[in-house]
């Protein structure tokens, strides 16, 4: 069992001692049931920390954002940030470490194990409750979730509410942590890895094309998927331009030098290009927190585009992202025995 009191106590000591600049965790939501990211700087705020299956967000993102902010504000507070990290979040931290984006000294990791559970998919919850609003959501053993509503409590099978990625998760505990809360539970998983991906991948080619074309057609290019992704930390995305960051001194000529790999118009083909480029750029880096899919306002299964490359990385190259910060990344390494049959 993850004892939330322990996490709160740790957060309080860290803040009291001034060891950390702030604690990134989850607090009760101000709207709706879902917990929300909390940025705590005072010891007494530690009491507001929560841990339940609505702690969906990947907090690694806020670490990245905070780093960006510190850089622009030229802050010289060099103290680390403490971060509450689930298994997937911790893998994101590993990739960030692997890419030198953060230094291990910049972060204190409060690892929490999902202990056979996971986080819910809000869409599944809404569907299961048929419109009623949930007030509380808690794991009830490993296989069930207790949901409180205005009209009382119901217990639903976890497999109906957990997010797809949690159902498929093979390692529901932090890879890397300073303190660990809860037990590392091995051998769980409700569905096989890549189950959601396979249902699409197994469709015939024409159907697959129609499926994705319809999705790309719908994309509004709000870039929410990119904004929520802890790996999309570049100052300037190739999708916007790749020539340079615009400054007040940027001349028109220089602006003309930008590569327009992708047009801004929400044309299906441009959107497809955007999603494919993003998937390629996340190959070997995406740790499947599925935040991109969650935030998509038009329900594009963005996660699957990353999943397909994750599966290939595993099956063809035995590469699992987010396991070892010392490893060269998927595409900056190779083995002599890599698949070669596909080449003529």
């Amino acid at each position: 069992m993850v004892a939330i009191e322990d996490i709160r106590a740790r957060a309080r000591t860290l803040l009291e001692s001034g060891e950390v600049r702030a604690v990134l965790g989850y607090q009760r939501g101000s709207a709706g049931t879902l917990a929300e990211p909390a940025f705590l700087t005072e010891p007494q705020q530690a009491a507001s920390l929560v841990w339940d299956p609505t702690c969906i967000h990947n907090l690694a993102l806020y670490l990245v954002n905070e780093k960006k902010r510190q850089r622009t504000q030229r802050s010289n507070d060099k103290r680390p940030l403490a971060v509450v990290a689930k298994g997937c979040d911790s893998r994101a931290l590993v990739v960030l470490l692997q890419e030198n984006h953060i230094d291990r000294s910049e972060v204190v990791i409060l690892g929490v194990s999902c202990e056979g559970g996971g986080v819910i998919d809000p869409r599944k919850l809404t569907r299961a409750l048929a419109g009623r609003a949930a007030t509380t959501v808690a794991m009830d053993g490993a296989d069930a979730i207790r949901v409180g509503t205005a009209s009382g409590e119901t217990t639903l099978p976890a497999s109906e509410l957990l997010a797809d990625r949690c159902l498929e998760c093979a390692r529901a505990y932090p890879e890397l942590y300073d303190t660990l809360y809860g037990d590392k539970a091995e051998g769980r998983s409700y569905s096989p890895r890549f189950a959601a991906l396979n249902t699409v991948a197994e469709k015939p080619l024409d159907e697959r094309r129609a499926y994705w074309n319809a999705h790309f057609e719908r994309c509004i290019r709000c870039y929410a998927c990119r904004a929520v992704c802890p790996m999309c930390y570049c100052d300037e995305c190739v999708v916007d331009s790749t020539e340079f960051v615009v400054t007040p001194n940027t001349s028109a000529d220089e602006k003309a030098n930008r590569i327009r790999w992708i047009q801004r118009s929400p044309d299906a083909s441009e959107s497809a290009m955007y999603h494919l480029v993003r998937a390629m750029h996340l190959a070997g880096r995406c740790i499947d927190c599925a935040e991109c899919e969650r935030v998509c306002p038009v329900n594009i299964p963005v996660r699957l585009l990353n999943n397909v490359l994750e599966r290939e990385a595993l099956e063809a190259f035995e590469y699992v992202p987010g396991t070892d910060p010392g490893l060269p990344s998927l595409i900056s390494s190779f083995r002599d025995g890599d698949p070669n049959d596909f080449v003529r």
Partner: peptide
């Protein structure tokens, strides 16, 4: 070879 293998799988996946 590694990179192109991945591109190819991605393209096939979207049809």
């Amino acid at each position: 070879r590694r990179r192109i293998y991945l591109v190819q799988k991605l393209l096939q996946f979207i049809g």
